[in-house]
Computed example of a mutant assay.
Amino acid sequence: MNIALYDGNNDDLKKLEECLRTQVGYEHDIETFNRGTELLDTISRNQKEFDIHFLSIETNKLSGLKIAEEIRKVDLTALIIFLSDDAEQMSNVFEFHAFDYLIKPVTVEIMESTFQRAKKYLNGNQSYIEFSFKKEKFLLPMDEIVYVTKSGRIAFIHTKNEVYKSYLTMFEILNKLNDERFIRVHGSYVINLDYVARIVKDEVFLCAPGQRGSANETSISISRRFKDDFQLSVEHLKIGEGR
Rank of each mutant, 00 (worst) to 15 (best):
L62H: 06
S63F: 03
L65A: 09
L65Q: 09
I67H: 00
E69S: 14
E69C: 09
E70R: 09
I71A: 07
I71D: 05
K73Y: 05
V74C: 06
V74I: 13
V74M: 11
D75A: 10
D75F: 01
L76I: 08
T77Y: 07
L79N: 03
I80E: 00
L83H: 02
S84M: 01
D86W: 05
A87K: 15
A87R: 15
Q89N: 15
M90C: 14
S91Y: 10
V93Q: 04
F94E: 12
F94N: 13
F96S: 01
H97E: 15
F99Y: 04
Y101D: 09
K104M: 09
K104Y: 03
P105D: 13
V108S: 13
E109W: 02
I110D: 11
I110L: 15
S113F: 05
Q116N: 13
Q116I: 09
Q116G: 05
R117H: 09
Y121D: 14
Y121K: 12
L122K: 12
G124L: 07
Y128C: 12
K135F: 07
L140T: 02
L140W: 04
M142C: 09
I145C: 03
V146A: 02
V148C: 13
T149Q: 14
K150F: 03
K150N: 10
K150A: 08
G152E: 05
I154T: 12
I154L: 09
F156D: 07
F156H: 13
I157F: 02
H158V: 08
T159Q: 10
T159F: 04
N161E: 15
N161Y: 05
N161K: 13
E162M: 13
Y164F: 11
S166A: 13
S166M: 10
Y167H: 12
T169D: 12
T169H: 13
M170N: 11
F171K: 15
E172G: 06
I173R: 05
L174V: 10
L174A: 08
L177Y: 00
N178T: 07
N178K: 14
R181A: 10
F182L: 06
F182S: 03
V185F: 03
V185G: 02
H186S: 11
G187L: 11
I191R: 01
N192A: 09
D194R: 10
D194S: 11
Y195A: 02
Y195P: 04
A197G: 01
A197L: 04
R198A: 10
R198F: 00
I199E: 10
V200F: 08
V200Y: 09
K201Y: 05
